[in-house]
Simulated assay, not measured.
Amino acid sequence: MSSPGTSTETLSPEPRLLLTVDAPSLLHRNHHARVDSGLRDQGGRPAWALHGMLRQILEVIDQFAPDAVVFGLDDRTASVRTETYPAYKAGRRPKDPTLVDQLERASALLDALGLLTVTPAGLEADDVSASAATWAEASGWSCVIVTSDRDSFAHISERTRVLRLINGGINGSPLLNPARLRTLYGIAAEHYLEYAALRGDTSDNLPGVPGIGEKSAPVLLSQMGSMQSVWADIDHCEGANLVAALDSYCEEEGLRRLGPGLLKRLTAPGARERFEFNLSLMSGRTDLDLGLTPDVPGTPGLLPLDADRVARVVGHLGVPSTTDLALRVLTEPPASVGG
């Protein structure tokens, strides 16, 4: 019997949480941040990037208590995007051989722990993140994407947040939801991909629509709602509503007129084609089979993990404090299971 004043209503349980990790972005970041440590595993192989990535993920798991963890990896042997656009990511400096070694060993390390890795043929870790967010939405789960890149911002929703690891570690990194993304970029989460396609991405060697950048793109999208509306207005009334909406906004904000100039740039030869091409190349695949079966005990990626495996695999890195942390956060039931 409940005590006086105590509600007898059953509270709805929190949705289970899927943590999806952009492993290559974290390995790159930790390689550059920790190379001076010269850390090697017990076999004498370079391990600073692997250890740094794992340490960060253990701290994230400790903070968020996920029910499952999946790591996305790039296919290092083939690229559908490079086949489509040979200049994709061209111009980047060759990777340090010690980083390449650790990128190639990441899957074996994580699989040996009992975590789940997905290396989609011809695709990238961001495609795994996109599919994980879609899977979580369809399954009634929440999702947190861990990355150091901006690509995953396109997947932010009411169920999916992005923890962008930057300087300052876990506690100093922003956890982005739709409201915070709008505060930072002035756009709705569902329009981030269109914003990125307009702006372009220099790191991937993708130029944006000429004359439209990080300041004008959010204004365009906030006033017109979507690029579909923009193109429809241009097609049906030569952009008259676009110009009127932008000029009205500028008048209210005390800014110089933007409408005619943006219309001219959007209707310039190749502008729409550039936007559509960027959109197609930047879009993450949402239909990958992650192999996650949460109702089957022992499925890779489900927490908790086997303590002996954790001690053996993490212990091979030769950092006792990380082994202790791994045993604590990986071998105990997550909060949503353990109550």
Rank of each mutant, 00 (worst) to 15 (best):
S226K: 05
L206R: 05
V162P: 02
E253V: 05
I212T: 11
P174M: 11
L263G: 08
A179D: 15
Q228M: 03
A179K: 12
A245H: 02
L266K: 03
P174N: 11
S173D: 03
M227I: 05
N241V: 07
A179Y: 02
G211P: 12
K264I: 00
R256M: 08
A196P: 03
V243S: 03
G186N: 14
G208W: 03
R257K: 14
G254S: 08
Y185A: 05
E238G: 08
Y185Q: 09
I234R: 02
L220M: 11
G208L: 07
E190C: 08
L181K: 05
C237I: 05
G211L: 10
W231Q: 05
L242N: 02
V209G: 10
G259A: 13
L266S: 06
D235K: 09
L221W: 03
L198S: 10
I166Q: 11
P178D: 08
L221D: 04
L206D: 07
N205A: 14
T202W: 00
A271P: 04
G172E: 02
P174F: 11
L184A: 13
L193Q: 10
N171I: 00
R182L: 09
H191Q: 15
L181Q: 09
V243I: 14
L198V: 09
S226C: 09
E252C: 04
G168C: 09
G169L: 03
S226P: 05
C250F: 08
A244Y: 00
E252I: 06
G211A: 06
L220A: 13
L198D: 05
D235W: 00
V243G: 07
R257P: 15
V162I: 13
S229A: 14
N241W: 01
W231N: 05
A240Y: 00
L262G: 10
L258D: 07
G225H: 06
N167K: 13
A189K: 04
L184P: 00
G168Q: 07
P210E: 05
E194A: 14
R182M: 11
L163T: 02
A232M: 00
A188C: 06
A271E: 02
V162H: 02
D201G: 10
P218D: 13
D247A: 13
V209P: 12
C237Y: 01
D233H: 03
L263S: 09
L184D: 10
L242P: 03
A245P: 01
G270S: 14
P174V: 12
